[in-house]
């Protein structure tokens, strides 16, 4: 009984992820219409055979724009977390393993970073760099570093005094070897868990920033930007907001379900 539930999670996750990947891949090869092409006669047109998701306020095909937008959103979430994770692991591993004065300084700095709402900090960074897709990635990536660093650090503190680490030191293994060959693989599970949360946060954070107009700039598309556009026409064309929101939910859900079942298989 227990096992069936796990399988359901895996299957639903796989189907949703498949849909998203299909959408993104199809968009890479060829979208049904050019995503920027406007057609005045089709302003806010409803769902039809020619436009399965309808058209937006400029008469652009929503399906085509969702294809491009999902790709942008996915890319932002991916790069953001890659930046956060890379520097987070580096900082967390060094401070957690060695401890001492350096650790204190960095962690207090970390606390300062964490005490701001992350979106506010990203806002400041965007104000420095100017809006745009790449700027959003970098700004959000920097904002994501402290939380990863904190998690990795606490795990490293837990492992650094374990007997097997002492044994490697007695063999003459270097600190780097211990950190990255003997401790990091043991932290994998924890990192994976926080990665799921991080990915979902990034998708939502991107949406929020685009909504505020400091994220992806039109005429480029991202799911967040499209949502913010759609909210102006919530009553005249509810399918616009609903469909874009649905794609965003699918993306988040597929990722959480997949990593959940992956963890259960491992553990």
């Amino acid at each position: 009984m227990n096992n069936n539930r796990k399988n359901h999670k895996l299957y639903i996750g796989l189907i949703l992820a498949g849909l998203i990947v299909l959408l993104i891949l199809a968009g890479l090869i060829r979208s049904p219409y050019p995503p920027q092409k406007m057609e005045a006669s089709l302003k806010l047109a409803g769902i039809s055979a020619a436009h399965p998701m309808g058209c937006d306020q400029f008469g652009r095909d929503i399906l085509s724009r969702v294809m491009i937008g999902a790709r942008t959103t996915f890319l932002i979430a991916f790069v953001t977390n890659a930046i956060g994770l890379f520097f987070g692991i580096l900082i967390g591993a060094l401070t957690g393993y060695f401890g001492g004065f350096f650790d204190e300084i960095l962690m207090r700095f970390n606390d300062v970073m964490l005490s701001f709402p992350s979106i506010l900090l990203a806002l400041v960074l965007i104000a420095l760099m100017g809006p745009g897709t790449y700027q959003v990635m970098i700004a959000m990536g920097i904002v994501f570093i402290p939380s990863y660093a904190r998690i990795v650090r606490s795990e490293f503190i837990r492992f650094r005094n374990m007997d097997y680490v002492l044994a490697i030191r007695l063999m003459g293994g270097s600190h780097l070897r211990i950190m990255f060959l003997h401790i990091l693989p043991n932290v994998k599970g924890t990192i994976l868990t926080s990665l799921i949360i991080g990915f979902n946060n990034a998708v939502l954070c991107e949406a929020a920033m685009s909504f505020l107009g400091i994220g992806v700039q039109p005429p480029d598309a991202s799911l967040g930007l499209m949502l913010s556009e759609a909210q102006g026409f919530l009553f005249r064309a509810p399918s616009y907001a609903l469909l874009v929101g649905f794609v965003m939910i699918c993306m988040i859900l597929s990722f959480s379900l997949l990593s959940d079942s992956l963890k259960e298989v491992q553990g």
């Binding site: 374990m162 007997d163 097997y164 002492l166 044994a167 490697i168 007695l170 063999m171 003459g172 293994g173 070897r177 003997h182 693989p185 043991n186 994998k188």
Partner: peptide, 26 residues
């Protein structure tokens, strides 16, 4: 050194062969 708690004295993510190989690799 050989430790008391055999649960903490081996790297849980490494196979036995790899653990024994570690000193040779170093």
């Amino acid at each position: 050194m050989i430790f008391q708690d055999p649960y903490h004295s081996l790297n849980p993510m490494m196979k036995v062969g790899r653990i024994l190989e570690e000193p040779l690799r170093i």
